[in-house]
C-alpha cells in the first residue's frame, strides 16, 4: 500500500465513522420512523456526505497534531505500525474512544433493527405451544421412514453427482487459475484474474439461489438441485485446488524441468504428486458439505429429502417432520464422521 493510498483510506474511514456516530445520535434524539427516512432519502444522503466531509477534515486535523486515529490504526502501512503505549488505557486514546463509541452505537442499532425482545421468550402461551410442537417432533412417525430413506438416498446422490461432475472440471481449471503457473506471462495473468473473479462471483451466490435458477431452466427435481450444487462446487473446488497448486514446492518442478521434460510432463510428474492428497481431502469435504446443502435444496424444488420436509412442515404434521429430522441428522452425522476419518487417514 502506498503512503498516499494509506492516507486516503485512513481519512475516508475516519470520515465514515464520524458521520455514522453523528447520525446515530441524531436518530436517537429525533426518532424518525423508517417511512420518514425513506421519503427524505436525498436529504439524508446529502447529510451523510456533509458529515463525512466534516469528519474527514477532523481526521486530517487530528492526524496533523500527531494523534493516532482509528483509521490510522487500521490502514497504517506495515512499516509505520507501532505498538501502542501499554501505559495508556484504551479509553484514554483518541482511536480507542472512536472504537468504543462505534461499537456501542452498532450494538444499540443492531438491538433495535433486529427487534430484540427477551420478554417474548418468556410469555406463557407461546411457550406452551412451542413445547407441544417439540413434543410432537420428538415422537416421530416411523411409518414414513421407508419413504424418508428413499428420499435421503436421492439427496446423497445429488451431492455425489454434483461433486463427481465438478471434480474433473475444477481439476483442469485449478492449473490455469494458479498464479505460479499462469503468472509468467501477461496473457496468463489475464486468464488467472478472470477465472479467480468468476469463481468468487459464483461462490458468493448460495446454492439455494442457483437451485431457483435451475428449477426454472430444467424444471423442478433432483437434476436442478444437482446442477446448483455442481456450479457452486466447481467454483469452490477450483479455488481451493488452485491454492494447493500455488503452495507446491519448487524443488521437484526444477528437478523435472532439468531433465528436459515438457510443460505437461512437468505438471504431471512434479506438481500432481504433490497435490493428490490435499485434492482428495478437499473433495471428500466438498461431498460432505454438498450433502448438507442437498438436504435443504428441496425447499426451492431442488429434489431430495428437503421436498418431503417442506410438504410436512407446510401441513404442520410434526411427527413426520420429526422422522425426517432424525434421518437427516443421522446421515449427515455418518457422512461427517466418514469424511473426517478419511481426511485424517490420508494426512
Amino acid at each position: 500500500m502506498s503512503e498516499t493510498g494509506g492516507k486516503i483510506r485512513r481519512t475516508i474511514f475516519d470520515a465514515i465513522v464520524f458521520a455514522y456516530l453523528v447520525i446515530f445520535v441524531l436518530v436517537a434524539i429525533m426518532r424518525p420512523d423508517s417511512d420518514e427516512l425513506i421519503e427524505q432519502m436525498g436529504f439524508n444522503v446529502a447529510l451523510f456526505f456533509g458529515l463525512a466531509f466534516i469528519g474527514g477534515v477532523i481526521s486530517l486535523a487530528v492526524s496533523a497534531k500527531g494523534i493516532k486515529t482509528l483509521g490510522e490504526v487500521i490502514y497504517a502501512p506495515a512499516h509505520r505500525r507501532t505498538v501502542s503505549d501499554p501505559d495508556t488505557p484504551l479509553w484514554q486514546t483518541f482511536w480507542g474512544v472512536q472504537l468504543i463509541l462505534a461499537l456501542i452505537a452498532t450494538f444499540v442499532l443492531g438491538w433495535v433493527l433486529t427487534e430484540v425482545n427477551p420478554l417474548l421468550l418468556i410469555e406463557a402461551e407461546p411457550i406452551s405451544q412451542a413445547m407441544r410442537l417439540f413434543a410432537e417432533v420428538a415422537d416421530p412417525d416411523w411409518s414414513i421412514l421407508p419413504k424418508a430413506i428413499m428420499k435421503i438416498i436421492e439427496s446423497i446422490f445429488i451431492a455425489f453427482m454434483a461433486t463427481a461432475f465438478a471434480v474433473p472440471i475444477a481439476f483442469v481449471l485449478s492449473f490455469i487459475s494458479a498464479r505460479n503457473i499462469m503468472g509468467k506471462s501477461p496473457i496468463g495473468m489475464v486468464i488467472y484474474t478472470l477465472l479467480r473473479v468468476s469463481f468468487n462471483l459464483s461462490r458468493s451466490i448460495e446454492p439455494i439461489l442457483w437451485a431457483i435458477i435451475f428449477t426454472i431452466w430444467v424444471s423442478f427435481g433432483p437434476f436442478a438441485g444437482m446442477l446448483a450444487l455442481m456450479v457452486h462446487s466447481i467454483a469452490s473446488l477450483a479455488k481451493q485446488y488452485s491454492e494447493i497448486v500455488e503452495g507446491v514446492s519448487d524443488g521437484p518442478i526444477e528437478g523435472i524441468e532439468a531433465t528436459g521434460a515438457g510443460r505437461l510432463q512437468t505438471v504431471w510428474f512434479a506438481i500432481v504428486p504433490q497435490i493428490v492428497l490435499p485434492y482428495i481431502s478437499y473433495t471428500i469435504y466438498r461431498w460432505d458439505t454438498n450433502l448438507r446443502m442437498a438436504t435443504i435444496l428441496g425447499f426451492v424444488g431442488g429434489g431430495g429429502i428437503g421436498t418431503m420436509l417442506m410438504e410436512y412442515q407446510g401441513q404442520s404434521r410434526w411427527p413426520q417432520v420429526g422422522t425426517i429430522i432424525v434421518v437427516m441428522a443421522f446421515v449427515v452425522w455418518v457422512m461427517d464422521a466418514f469424511s473426517s476419518h478419511v481426511r485424517a487417514a490420508i494426512k
Partner: peptide
C-alpha cells in the same frame, strides 16, 4: 543433467 541441494526427486 542436474542435481540439487534438496535432491528434488518426487518423494511419493
Amino acid at each position: 543433467g542436474m542435481i540439487f541441494q534438496h535432491f528434488n526427486i518426487i518423494e511419493r
